[in-house]
């Protein structure tokens, strides 16, 4: 029997997810423009794998398959996986990662709404631990043509170490370590000099900064549509800027500028699309600020002092663990119990 309220706002999980997907389009367009069509292939692969995996598990669990596939949440996960994996990752890597995300991280925990970890980020972490080399091969913008990309994705042999480098973040870190090492040829060079290569653009990585701008635009649109709130993106950007700015101000020759950190890697994707995943993220206003700020600091630490190309994935998972505690401790006072 239906009880009040008898009227409802026309909102659905499906429309929320659809808007998230739409918001990713500018970033994807920039990605494809600068780095070639490989990313589109990856997105298609991940989407197909996600839908197949989700449908299979739903059928086994006796849940209505069409209803849950229609919520589009699996596709959001798939796109985030494709966007965070290297665009030239072999097809089986993307497919395995996606299946891990959907089957293990999402469905085994109870499906939509129940997963404590962000599925896409968990998949990234699993794959980078399992296949560190494959997950660290990133082509520079415009370096590989469409044919080569397809061959790398679907072909077997991969002798591309010579032509593919690391991400700008990776490259800069390696270079800075060289600069600090008296034995290295780079010894004594400053961060700004190290960044004066073709891999780097105006403020971030060459091409990558435009992709980040695409994500930023999409994210702002999501904000305007009230799909996400300002708390997580703002806290993430502010904390990352502050952390990077602090060390940069102390030692500008040894650290990259905060703007570089904001425009590089997955910072924008993380701020607007990954950390804002409501299922695995904090939900209270103060909790969101804490959650995102913590993720930003962890990201920075992993980027600068760790060994992985980017820190977003690990930072997200680490903060996901803290979410129940954060939420519990940051409950807002209720009506009539506020201290004015």
């Amino acid at each position: 029997m239906i009880n009040s309220p008898f009227v409802r706002k026309p909102a659905s999980v499906q429309s929320v997810m659809l808007q998230v997907l739409l918001a990713l389009v500018p970033g994807i367009a920039a990605y494809a423009w600068f780095f070639g069509p490989g990313i589109l292939v990856q997105i298609a692969l991940a989407t197909a794998a996600a839908l197949a995996g989700e449908a299979a598990v739903l059928a086994i669990r006796g849940k209505p398959v069409a209803l849950f596939l229609g919520d589009l949440s699996a596709i959001v996960t798939a796109w985030l996986i494709a966007l965070t994996f290297p665009p030239i990752a072999p097809w089986w890597l993307t497919v395995t990662g996606t299946l891990l995300a959907i089957v293990i991280v999402k469905q085994l925990y109870g499906g939509l709404g129940q997963n404590p970890f962000n599925p896409a980020m968990a998949a990234f972490c699993l794959m980078i631990v399992a296949y560190p080399a494959l997950m660290s091969q990133w082509p520079a913008a415009g370096q590989l043509d469409a044919g080569t990309q397809l061959e790398l994705i679907f072909g077997g042999a991969r002798q591309i170490d010579a032509i593919t480098g690391a991400t700008p973040l990776d490259a800069l870190r390696t270079a800075l370590r060289g600069a600090a090492d008296p034995a290295s040829t780079l010894h004594g060079l400053r961060a700004a000099q190290l960044m004066d290569g073709p891999a780097f653009g105006l403020i971030g990585g060459h091409g990558g900064e435009w992709v980040a701008l695409g994500y930023l635009l999409g994210g702002l649109w999501l904000l305007q549509r009230r799909i996400i709130t300002w708390h997580i993106p703002l806290a993430f950007c502010a904390a990352l800027f502050a952390a990077a700015g602090l060390l940069w101000a102390l030692k500008p020759e040894g650290f990259a500028s905060p703007l570089f950190h904001l425009a590089s890697g997955g910072a924008m994707l993380g701020a607007f699309f990954i950390l804002t995943d409501p299922v695995s993220g904090a939900t209270t206003a103060r909790g969101k600020l804490l959650f995102a700020a913590g993720a930003a600091v962890l990201t920075y630490v992993i980027r600068v002092f760790g060994a992985y190309p980017d820190g977003i994935a690990f930072a997200t998972l680490l903060m996901n663990i803290c979410v129940p505690l954060i939420d519990m401790k940051t409950q807002a006072p209720v009506f009539g119990h506020k201290k004015d």
Partner: peptide, 20 residues
């Protein structure tokens, strides 16, 4: 049909008693 809660927080935003 009732779908699982995705913790989007829309309800908390709409609650006039500041509840979660």
């Amino acid at each position: 049909p009732e779908m699982p809660c995705i913790r989007c927080g829309e309800c908390a935003k709409a609650c006039p008693a500041d509840l979660a």
